[in-house]
Simulated assay, not measured.
Amino acid sequence: MLSAEPGATERWIEGAVETRLRRQSVFQREDPPMYWALLDECALLRPVGGREVMREQLEHLLKLTERPNISIQVVPLEVGCHSRSAGRLRPRAG
């Protein structure tokens, strides 16, 4: 996916991968944060990397949901547009 980014160089991709892996370490802490993700069903239907890569990704997500602090929910296609479609939280009132 990173290689599809316009202007992506090998060096940039390596740096982006390192950054993502480093960010994931927060979930290895003794008191990890709660994480709740809404995953659009489209993401599960788009075969990025091929069948084997997709299978490994899904297995990884399933394993993550075994942790008490991680929740991943799939938003079905028939829902259409929903309040989290833009990928950000609502602004706070006041």
Rank of each mutant, 00 (worst) to 15 (best):
R88A: 10
R23Y: 03
Q24L: 10
L77W: 01
T65G: 07
V26M: 04
Q73V: 13
V74M: 04
K63T: 11
G94Q: 04
S25Q: 15
T65L: 08
S3W: 14
E66V: 02
A93G: 11
A37W: 00
L39Y: 07
I72W: 10
A43P: 04
P33W: 00
R92C: 02
R55T: 14
V17M: 10
S71G: 10
V53C: 10
T19S: 14
R84F: 06
Q73K: 14
R23Q: 07
I72D: 14
L45R: 15
S71V: 12
E59N: 14
P47G: 02
S3I: 10
C42N: 06
E5W: 14
E14H: 08
D31L: 04
Q73C: 04
L45M: 12
G49S: 07
N69G: 03
R84P: 03
L62F: 04
V53A: 15
S85V: 01
Q24R: 14
L2Q: 11
P76I: 14
A37T: 05
Q73W: 05
S25T: 15
R51Q: 13
R84W: 07
E30A: 10
K63V: 06
E10N: 08
L89E: 04
Q57E: 06
A37H: 11
N69A: 03
V53P: 03
R90D: 03
P68F: 01
E30S: 09
V74Y: 00
E52Q: 12
V79H: 06
R84V: 09
E56C: 07
V75C: 01
Q28N: 12
D40G: 12
E18Y: 13
A43L: 15
P76R: 01
G7V: 12
A93R: 08
E18K: 10
R23M: 02
A43M: 13
P91I: 00
L45W: 03
E14I: 10
H60N: 11
C81P: 06
L77Y: 01
R55L: 07
R90W: 01
R11L: 11
L61Q: 01
L77S: 13
L39I: 07
P47L: 03
M54I: 13
D40T: 00
E66S: 08
V17C: 10
L58V: 15
P47R: 05
V79K: 02
E59W: 00
L61F: 05
S83W: 00
R46M: 11
L2H: 11
I72L: 15
A16C: 05
V75W: 00
K63R: 10
A4G: 13
A43K: 08
G80N: 09
L38N: 04
L2F: 12
P76C: 09
E30I: 14
D31H: 07
R92A: 06
T65E: 09
L58F: 01
L39K: 08
I70C: 06
E59S: 15
H60C: 13
L62K: 01
G7D: 06
S25D: 11
R67G: 01
V74E: 03
G49I: 12
L58I: 13
H60T: 15
R29F: 05
R20D: 03
E52H: 09
L77C: 11
I13W: 05
L21M: 11
M34W: 15
T65P: 09
E59L: 12
V53M: 09
A93M: 02
Q28T: 14
V48W: 00
F27D: 03
V79T: 13
E66H: 06
E14C: 02
A93N: 03
V79F: 06
S25Y: 00
E78S: 09
E41P: 13
